[in-house]
Design a protein around this nucleic acid. Sequence first.
DNA 1: AATCGTAGCAACCGCCGTACA
DNA 2: TTGTACGGCGGTTGCTACGAT
Length: 275
Amino acid sequence: MKRKRPAALRGGEEAAAAALKRGPWTPEEDEVLARFVAREGCDRWRTLPRRAGLLRCGKSCRLRWMNYLRPDIKRCPIADDEEDLILRLHRLLGNRWSLIAGRLPGRTDNEIKNYWNSHLSKKLIAQGIDPRTHKPLTAAADHSNAAAAVAATSYKKAVPAKPPRTASSPAAGIECSDDRARPVDGGGDFAAMVSAADAEGFEGGFGDQFCAEDAVHGGFDMGSASAMVGDDDFSSFLDSLINDEQLGDLFVVEGNDHEHGNGEIGHGDVMESKQ
DNA sequence: AATCGTAGCAACCGCCGTACA
DNA sequence: TTGTACGGCGGTTGCTACGAT
């Protein structure tokens, strides 16, 4: 659906190396890629296009597969409960799209990211909520101006902090290095979060560990967590956050409308409640 | 009917972490 | 220990579709 920038002018050594095709994928290319992956697996994206006879860079093939061709991809619109889950997870994890996608079977990080940027962030803004911090925009303005809050996406580089990235590991079924097929990898000062949560029923614990700015801006240190707990633990923890009825209360800020009905985003603000 | 503005989203880019020689 | 290759992630771009004028 695009790309007219000459590859040679932009980093991408792969694309620059040869006259590789860019832009929208054709049905024929899709079929070639899908057949090849089904037959051979996708353990080496770099060499896959050559082996499959595609004039694409490995990254492009990987992206196409991950975001479009995987058989488990859901093509239906994001449902209300999924939207609700995205909101909760974003509040907890910030722009960790791959982590969020890991909790939504059949959804890709790209899809969720797009949905957030085109729908949810605007929805939150319309309700006077800062999509970055999930705090009321007026409160957010105490720290940064509202305009910055509206420009919800460009903060990562200012405060870089990423979860540890595990190397590729084969997923079940077709052998692909697909993060979304694995349990979500670790996140945050998890041990402290868990202990705080255990001691206080989450309430309070998150206030310390999840200063809104830190959490949403990446201060949520994924690195320390994976050293202390396993993926399964973190996955279970997220499940508990997602499913626990307690959490429903936790997400409701004092004085906020507790109702989720009528299409409103009715979550409260766990960060705000600690202020 | 033509033009303009905007929303949605597929695809690309640069960067970073991990694996391995 | 260092350098290189590769995979993966989040941010950004820009094309397409569609509604408004």
